[in-house]
């Protein structure tokens, strides 16, 4: 049990690190100008359609259904 708990902790940490990395990468993309910003948004949209949250509430976590916060973010960016 201890071993499983330790493994879960390591994996959770790794997940958080990867999510942060992804968020940073997308942030950089958005900061690199209008054309690239559109690219960043497209990546976020794809990420959402692939079944991941893109909202600041649960960024990068898998989602089982649509999310009000992700949807509002996408709508804001579209407008």
């Amino acid at each position: 049990m201890q071993k499983i708990k330790k493994e879960a902790r390591v994996l959770t940490g790794e997940n958080d690190r990867l999510r942060a990395q992804l968020a940073r990468a997308l942030g950089r993309e958005e900061a690199a100008g209008d054309a690239e910003q559109r690219g960043g948004m497209e990546t976020l949209r794809q990420l959402y359609e692939q079944g991941f949250h893109i909202c600041n509430v649960h960024f990068g976590r898998p989602r089982t259904a649509d999310c009000l916060f992700c949807s509002a973010f996408l709508n804001r960016e579209r407008d």
């Binding site: 359609e49 989602r63 089982t64 649509d66 999310c67």
Partner: peptide, 14 residues
């Protein structure tokens, strides 16, 4: 109250 419409394409399972 707010309600998101159901999407025709289901999202990936967790």
């Amino acid at each position: 109250s707010l309600l998101l419409p159901a999407q025709p394409k289901p999202a990936r399972s967790e």
